[in-house]
Design a protein around this nucleic acid. Structure first.
Lengths: 181, 181
DNA sequence: GAATCCACTGGGCAATCTGCACAGTCGTAC
DNA sequence: GTACGACTGTGCAGATTGCCCAGTGGATTC
C-alpha cells in the first residue's frame, strides 16, 4: 500500500479544523477510542459506529497519522507470553560525557524495552524484561557491564495495576479541546 | 466482526506446533516483526512477504492472539501530539495497607499512563504526562493529594533514546526457540 | 513398516471493503 | 454575499477477507 498518500479523499486539507495545536476534537477523540477498543475494524465499520460518512473517517485518520497523533498500529506484544515474565526498572547513573556511548550500548540489548534520560542526577531510566529473576541478573550484568555506567539501582515489577493506557487521556484531551474553543 | 473466531481456517488447532510454552518459532517471529514494521498490511500481503500460504498466516495470527502473545493492534497514540509533551516517572511511597485505595485513585487520573508496584520499599512507579512543566505540578499534586501516599519523588524525562520497542526481543525469542529445540 | 496426525500449500467463491472520485449541503470567515 | 473548508451520500473497479476443500510431506505412534 502507498506510504504517503496525499490527504485528498474528498475533503480534509492539511490544515486542522478548529483545534489549535493539540489537535483532537471530539470526533477525533471518539475515533481514537474506538480504534483503541476494536483495532481491527476498518474505515467503513468505524464510520458506521461513529455515525459519520466514510470519507470523513478516512480523512480524519489520515490527518491524525500525518499529525503524528497516531504513530501507527503496531501489534501489542506481551513480553510475558514471549517468555519474559519479569519486568524491572533500572535507574542508571552514568559518567559525565558518556551519554552517547551508553545509549548505543543499551540500544543493543534486546531486553531493554525503553530508555529515558531524566532529570535528577543526569541519570537514565530503563525498562527491562527477563526470563526469570535469575535471568534478570544476567540482563542487569549486561546492562551495567559497560564502562560509562557508574551505578544502577533496580526495582522489580510485581504487579501492573494500570497497564499502559491512553484512552483516558484521549478522552480528556478531546473534551478539553471541545469545550475550550 | 467476530470476536472469538474458533481457530479453524484450514489447520492450526489450539495446541502449539513445537515451542514449549514461550511460543514463537521463527515464522511467528518474522510475522510479528513484519506486523510491527508495517501494521497496516493485511493477511494476504503478509503471506506474500513471508513466502507462505495465506491460511498459514491467518492461522498463526489467530494462534498468536489467543496465545496472548499479541494482545491487540491498538493505535499507538503520541501523548505529545495530544498536547502532553512532558513525561515523568514518579516513585511513590505508600502507607501500608493502602495499596488498593491508592491504585483506584491513580487509575482515576488520566495523566497516569501506567502504574506498577515494585520491590524496593513496597513502592509504586508510575508514568505521568502533563501539558507543561507547570502543569506537571498540577498532575503531581493530584497524584499525591491522596491520603495513602506518603511521599513521591519525580524524575522528568528529557530524552527518549529508546522508545518502547519489542522487535529486538521478538527476534531474540524467535531465534532462541528455534535453535533451542 | 504402516497408519495417523498435523501444519501447510494452493486453489476457489461470495461478500465485503478500500481507494478514488464527484456533486451537493452547510456554517463560517472574509 | 461570496468563497472556502468540512462533511454527506453515492458509485465503481479492484483487492481482500472469511471460509472451504483436496493434497503433500514430515513426524509420531503402533
Amino acid at each position: 500500500m502507498m506510504t504517503s498518500r496525499s490527504v485528498t479523499h474528498a475533503m480534509a486539507p492539511p490544515s486542522s479544523p478548529s483545534p489549535g495545536s493539540s489537535g483532537i476534537d471530539q470526533l477525533d477523540g471518539r475515533l481514537i477510542v474506538l480504534l483503541a477498543r476494536e483495532p481491527r475494524i476498518g474505515v467503513l465499520e468505524a464510520s458506521r459506529r461513529l455515525g459519520v460518512a466514510r470519507g470523513t473517517v478516512q480523512a480524519r485518520m489520515d490527518r491524525l497519522q500525518s499529525n503524528g497523533v497516531i504513530r501507527g498500529f503496531g501489534p501489542d506484544v506481551d513480553p510475558a507470553a514471549l517468555g519474559y515474565p519479569v519486568t524491572a526498572f533500572a535507574t542508571l547513573e552514568i559518567k559525565q560525557g558518556q551519554g552517547t556511548e551508553v545509549r548505543a550500548h543499551l540500544a543493543g540489548v534486546p531486553e531493554v524495552l525503553e530508555l529515558h534520560t531524566t532529570t535528577g542526577h543526569g541519570d537514565m531510566l530503563c525498562r527491562l524484561v527477563a526470563r526469570s529473576n535469575a535471568d534478570l541478573q544476567r540482563v542487569i550484568d549486561r546492562v551495567v557491564g559497560f564502562d560509562g555506567i557508574v551505578r544502577a539501582s533496580t526495582a522489580i515489577v510485581m504487579e501492573n495495576p494500570v497497564p499502559l493506557r491512553i484512552i483516558p487521556l484521549v478522552e480528556q484531551a478531546a473534551a478539553w479541546e471541545d469545550s475550550g474553543t
